[in-house]
Design a protein around this nucleic acid. Structure first.
Lengths: 124, 124
DNA sequence: ACTACTGTATTAGATTAATAATACAATATC
DNA sequence: GATATTGTATTATTAATCTAATACAGTAGT
C-alpha cells in the first residue's frame, strides 16, 4: 500500500479515499479483514487517532464495518461496491471534463488530447 | 465569476486555482486590471485577508503583479500563459487517468467511457 | 492640496486537524 | 483463566486557516 499523503488536505480524508479506492479496485477483497487501527496507522505513519477517524467515517458509508473486539472488515455487499465504482467513475469523468473546460479546453479537444496520448503509448 | 468555495480545502488555495483558471481560459485578459482586494473579497464573500493571501501567493507564480497603489494586473506574458495552459492540461489528464486506474479502470476503458459520453451528448 | 482608494501589515480570537499519551471494556487466543 | 489484541474514548497540546478590526504609506484623481 502506498500512502502518499500530502499536507494540503485533511489526512483522514485522504485515507478514506485511498481505502475506498482499494476496495473498489478489488485490492481489498469483500469480507477481507483489515489490519488493526494501530497497524494501519503505523503503516501510513499517522497518529492512530487520525486512522481511527478515517475508518469510523468510512463506516458511515457502509464500505467497512467493525466487530467490536475482533477487527474491521470490508463489506461483502458486492452490488454496493459495483454501484459505487460506476458512480465514482462517472463523477471523476464529469469532474475532469469540467476542470478542462475551466482551462478553456472543450470536450472535443479534451477527447482529442486523450486519444493522442493513448496512441503515443501504444507505439512506445 | 462563480466563487464556489468549499470548506474541505484551504479557501485561499481554491481562490488561487479559480483565478489561475480564469487567466488561462482567457476570461481575464493579459494586462487587465483586477478588482481591488476588498472588492474581490466582497464578491467571494471571504475575509479581505484571505483574498490578500491568495493574491500575494499568486504573485509568486508570476501570473499577476501588483502596482503598489494602483491595483493588481494580469501578466502580459502571453507565452507564459500558453505554456502554463498546456502544462496544466497535461497534468489534469495524467491525474485523471491515474485516479481512474486507482478505481481499477484501465486507460482503454476510460477512453471508451469518455467517447461514449461525448457521443451521447451529440445525439441529445 | 485634498480625498479616496490602493496594497500591505498587525494583532487577536475561533475553529479544525493532527499529534501525543493514556485508559477502558470486550473478546480472541493461548 | 490469564494475556494480548481489538475498537473506542478522553484530555491536552500544537499548528494551520479563517475571520475580524484596524492601521499605515503611497498615489491616482479631483
Amino acid at each position: 500500500m502506498s500512502w502518499n499523503l500530502t499536507t494540503d488536505r485533511p489526512i483522514f480524508s485522504q485515507i478514506m479515499e485511498i481505502i475506498s479506492q482499494n476496495i473498489i479496485s478489488g485490492k481489498y477483497a469483500p469480507g477481507e479483514k483489515l489490519p488493526s487501527v494501530r497497524d494501519l496507522a503505523a503503516q501510513a505513519a499517522v497518529n492512530p487517532n487520525t486512522m481511527q477517524k478515517a475508518l469510523s467515517e468510512l463506516e458511515k458509508t457502509g464500505l467497512v464495518f467493525a466487530k467490536r473486539t475482533s477487527g474491521r472488515y470490508i463489506t461483502e455487499d458486492i452490488a454496493m461496491i459495483q454501484e459505487l465504482k460506476s458512480h465514482m467513475a462517472q463523477e471523476k469523468i464529469q469532474e475532469f471534463l469540467k476542470s478542462m473546460e475551466s482551462l478553456g479546453i472543450s470536450r472535443e479537444e479534451t477527447a482529442a488530447l486523450l486519444t493522442e496520448i493513448l496512441k503515443g503509448e501504444k507505439e512506445a
